[in-house]
């Protein structure tokens, strides 16, 4: 089959060039969804093929930005997997409450929904000014959206349902103001948030966190990149700290299994053991 092989070669060369030129490393991403994203980007671009796109992408940072955006689409919701947030509230918060100050890292925060969900959770659990949330993503453009905290109003119905299933204690409408077809989250929710660009594939670890959320990020990586990222998450987590993965991600059969205990079967919330 010469046609698909040619396209794979072209994609590979483009990603290699992107890594050397811009330092963004997509070479160890799982291929099926990466290829779909690349094809979607190409179809929406003015280029007939990846080889034709390669020069402009490498020479023009603005063209590269469109590619980066296409490759890092992350769709998320507030309180996605409500039961996971319920587990956080019921099983993890009681431990964290004993800390004088809480450092939380949302790795791969995309447009910020998860970071805001956490801020709401911590506020309701009485953390007040005793926490800071570091929300990072590879794509600076989504961070701009995350900082704004403005979401399409039509999303809010789903967010509200999730919030209620996650054990929310207030009326979700207390947390946003609607204006035309947009909903703006309460500015006070981001007072204790720091947004920063961070690339899990190439950047260093992130200091002594007590809680790290990295959900539905590892599913996009091949085994060696997944191992690198788990090592980085582990190095960023203080002993006794908690790591939350996505519902279909697990530390089972990884070298980190021994160093962590899952707080409830299949909760995908892990506590780092004290050595």
């Amino acid at each position: 089959m010469p046609t698909p092989n040619l396209q794979h070669v072209e994609m590979h060369l483009l990603l290699e060039g992107v890594f050397q030129m811009y330092g963004h490393d997509f070479r160890d991403y799982a291929e099926a969804s990466l290829h779909r994203r690349l094809n979607k980007w190409l179809a929406e671009s003015r280029f007939p093929g990846f080889s034709e796109a390669q020069g402009p992408v490498l020479r023009d940072p603005a063209v590269f930005q469109t590619l980066l955006k296409g490759l890092t689409v992350h769709v998320t919701e507030m309180f996605r997997d409500p039961l996971a947030f319920k587990a956080l509230r019921e099983e993890v918060i009681p431990h964290l409450r004993t800390y004088p100050f809480l450092k939380v890292w949302v790795a791969g925060c995309a447009t910020g929904e998860e970071a805001y969900s956490l801020a709401i959770l911590l506020e309701e659990e009485g953390f007040k000014d005793r926490y800071r949330i570091y929300a990072t993503d590879i794509d600076p453009e989504v961070l701009t959206q995350a900082k704004a905290g403005i979401y399409p109003l039509k999303e809010l119905q789903k967010f509200t349902q999730n919030y209620q299933k996650a054990g929310g204690k207030a009326a979700f409408s207390d947390y946003y103001a609607a204006s035309f077809d947009l909903a703006m989250l309460e500015p006070r929710l981001r007072e204790r948030m720091v947004f920063a660009t961070h690339n899990l594939a190439v950047d260093a670890n992130f200091g002594e966190m007590n809680l790290v959320l990295c959900r539905n990020v590892l599913i996009y990586f091949k085994p060696n990149l997944k191992a690198r990222v788990l090592e980085l998450l582990d190095a960023s987590l203080a002993p006794g700290g908690f790591l939350c993965l996505g519902q279909k991600e697990s530390l089972d059969t990884t070298p980190w299994q021994k160093g962590y205990q899952e707080i409830a079967p299949r909760s995908r919330v892990y506590r780092k053991r004290y050595e």
């Binding site: 794979h8 799982a30 996009y220 279909k248």
Partner: peptide
Amino acid sequence: APANYHLLVEPDGCLALSIDP
């Protein structure tokens, strides 16, 4: 395929999941 995830096949035949739109 798990609820709320796409199920994909990698070029080597292994399974992959995504939360793409």
